[in-house]
């Protein structure tokens, strides 16, 4: 019978030079790989949030002239508000800097502050949020993805408050500088897709126009309908209460508006008509509207647009995210609402 030889272990012949080569060589390669990952995920990640935050803050950093309209908000605004429509309808220039809901109003505040630092106060700001963003506690760790020098939050209102704890700073550090550790899901997905030759790993998964508008083309009516069910469950189980940080950040924005005479428009995001018709949704939205109206009531420059624009499922990707034709309709409507508001004042 042929029997496989049982393998042995004999120590390798080696000089002492080998130890630093092994240790330092592999660590240096790992660090290089990490830097490559930072660049790669900023451009080609499958993590939409990471990509959006990176791209929009990058857009803000690379703006070389001021605009008339700063459009801020969450992902519904990102793919729902078209700056080009502002230009066509009002003849005024706009930029869409909307990111994701989990950064909350703090992100809008910090972007506005950075804009003021660079260009002075903008004439107008539009803030668009889905109804269920206002109650959320923000995830400060996500600010680690903002491509700014480490500790940039110290220059912003509430920065000290949000990043006061060492653990938050540590996690944000990992998020910012060690994506090999913090972005494992995105890396794994990218690797899997590349290994299965499903996609070109150096092709961006989304497209943002130079004015910041994210183009979405494919409707997903079934996702819209199913998503609406989840929303109804949420609204039937919860009453509205704004989160502390969103509240604080909004108060800061109101102060900025009053100090610099900036017109700030608080706007409801587009919504699926089936969801809007639900009474529990209406109840919840009533609480949101009351809170937003409360911000406007004591300020000369903050306005709340109470109207809501609803859409059929075939113009949407989920109950509050539009595809491009829907975005065009929504932005025309929004501009019209602003015009009406201006005329009434």
């Amino acid at each position: 019978m042929l029997r496989l030889k049982i393998p042995q272990e004999t120590l390798p012949e080696a000089g002492w030079w080998r130890v630093p080569v092994d240790l330092l060589g592999s660590l240096v390669l790992l660090v290089c790989l990490n830097f490559f990952t930072i660049w790669y995920l900023g451009n080609f990640t499958t993590n939409f949030g990471y990509w959006t935050i990176y791209q929009k803050w990058d857009l803000l950093a690379n703006m070389d002239e001021s605009v008339d309209w700063l459009i801020l908000g969450d992902s519904s605004c990102n793919q729902g508000v078209m700056p080009s429509v502002f230009y066509n309808d009002l003849g005024e220039r706009a930029v869409n800097l909307c990111t994701i809901g989990n950064l909350g109003v703090v992100n809008e505040l910090w972007m506005l502050e950075e804009y003021i630092d660079r260009f002075g106060p903008p004439g107008n700001v539009v803030i668009v949020h889905v109804y269920d963003v206002w109650h959320r506690d923000i995830d400060p760790v996500l600010f680690g993805q903002v491509p700014r020098p480490w500790g940039f939050w110290h220059q912003h209102s509430l920065g000290q408050y949000i990043f006061g704890e060492q653990t938050v700073r540590d996690q944000a550090f990992l998020e910012r500088f060690i994506p090999l550790y913090s972005q494992t899901r995105a890396i794994t997905t990218n690797l899997q897709m590349a290994a299965m030759l499903q996609d070109n790993p150096f092709k961006a998964n989304w497209h943002i126009q130079p004015d910041g508008f994210l183009v979405a083309t494919e409707p997903h009516p079934e996702v819209v309908v199913n998503g609406a069910r989840d929303h109804i469950q949420f609204t039937s189980e919860n009453g509205f209460q704004i989160s502390k940080l969103n509240d604080l950040a909004m108060q800061e924005i109101v102060e900025l508006a009053d100090s610099y005479r900036i017109n700030v428009y608080l706007v409801n995001s587009p919504v699926y008509e089936g969801l809007y018709a639900d009474p529990t949704y209406q109840d919840y939205l009533y609480g949101v509207q009351a809170k937003l109206a409360g911000f406007a009531i004591y300020s000369q420059f903050v306005y709340h647009i109470e109207a809501v624009h609803t859409f059929p499922a075939d113009l949407m990707q989920n109950p509050d995210h539009l595809i491009q034709p829907g975005a065009e309709i929504y932005t025309h409507w929004l501009v019209e609402q602003i015009r009406l508001l201006r005329e009434s004042n």
Partner: peptide, 19 residues
């Protein structure tokens, strides 16, 4: 027949493997 075969690789492939 060698349990430490990978530790015996030349420097460059070994460091690449470790990384």
């Amino acid at each position: 027949g060698d349990l430490l075969i990978l530790a015996r690789l030349p420097a460059l492939p070994r460091v690449l493997l470790y990384a």
